[in-house]
Design a protein around this nucleic acid. Structure first.
Lengths: 207, 207
DNA sequence: TGTGTAAGCAAGTAACTACTTGCATTTGTG
DNA sequence: CACAAATGCAAGTAGTTACTTGCTTACACA
């Protein structure tokens, strides 16, 4: 039972580094400190192994977004920061998955779970802001959500390749995108400073 | 000289579909309708071939953005649309390139040329809007540029995989992101309707 | 103490990889 | 016509790939 986990986590590492074709059973065995045959005895085939490994990788704990918004700027900022952090930590894996998906559509299902969930959560929150009247402008929640998530996604994927194209400092980027979005939908940045508790929570989440 | 071009364009196709490791000399030869040895006689090695092919792929004609903004909404929208179209047409190639870049950093230079250029152009335009006073809000041009480009990039990369996450209809998406950004930086959508000529140009560019 | 299960090891299979060699054929040019 | 360069074809090299087989070792549990 122990070797099984060893193999799966090794598979994730190797796959993130080299993609499907580069993720050979030999390399997995070496990384896992396991004999190559053990892989086939445990999982039957390379494909089955990778399928199994993908299931584990694509699961997350995203920062929650309250049902009724009370401090949009700090709530949204901490959500953005946790989303950004999630993407950054998995950027290699995400790049590989996106690249293989056309050739192996079955990977799509598990891979798209997180962004789908994030989009739904964010849409729900933005809709609440709109209904509350906190957001003064007319806007389409789905478009606004796609814009914020897109900005964060592109930053997480592209900054390593071209750091000068993205805002500085890196740690403030999520906040800066969030503020821009809030302005776009007409949310005043009169952050309710009474809710220090919430600000605290935001900070610990982004850490 | 003809077989050379045939081989290079075949390489681009195969690479976009299967990535570096999947882009075998056998497959390239088949796609080019050429004997495999011809590849080695012409280019010496697979690596040299792909290097050559990448040079050709990563070149573009992006819609120009005027030095002095006159109709921000239509000008920016047509730019966004052409940028989106460019990304969509090359989405497979871009995905593969992004995936291989960690393993083959030499590909980065040619691949990052277009987004760098686009970012510089957009920043320049947004700065002009700010200086003009057309943009009422305080904002960082680089952040704003990264946000619009990020939204467009994520849409171009992700819509095929999860269409329900992105705004509908697809053809209006670039415009919707652009409008949101303009609101964020405080540009009134009082499009100067006198400049019908410009609107026309915008439409033909996006077609 | 005996037994079953999971693991290691060594070796081997058939297919595929990048790349090479030798020779025949085409093609454009003087 | 003659010559050279570009290409095709058939075959082969050495390495890698996914996956298999047969046999041995180690450990848990009864």
């Amino acid at each position: 039972m122990d070797s099984r986990n060893e193999i799966i986590s090794a598979t994730c590492q190797v796959f993130a580094k080299l993609g499907f074709r580069g993720c050979t059973t030999r390399r997995i065995a070496d990384a896992a400190g396991v004999n190559e045959v053990t892989i086939f005895r445990q999982f039957g085939s390379k494909e089955a192994l990778i399928r199994e490994a993908m299931k584990r990788t694509h699961s997350v704990d995203l920062a929650p977004l309250p049902d009724v918004p009370s401090d949009p700027e700090s709530e949204l900022t901490s959500w953005s920061e946790s989303f950004m952090q999630h993407l950054r930590l998995r950027s290699s894996m995400i790049r590989k998955t996106m690249s293989e998906m056309e050739e192996r559509p079955e990977m799509c299902e598990s891979a798209s779970y997180v962004p789908r969930q994030a989009s739904a959560d964010l849409c729900h929150y933005l809709t609440a802001l709109k209904r509350q009247g906190t957001a003064a402008e007319k806007f389409d929640p789905k478009t606004a959500a796609a814009m914020l998530m897109g900005a964060i996604f592109a930053d997480a994927m592209g900054r390593g390749m071209m750091p000068d194209v993205y805002p500085q400092p890196e740690e403030k980027a999520a906040q800066m995108y969030t503020r821009l979005l809030l302005k776009a939908i007409g949310v005043e940045n009169g952050t309710r400073r009474t809710t220090t508790k919430q600000t605290k929570r935001a900070k610990q989440l982004s850490a």
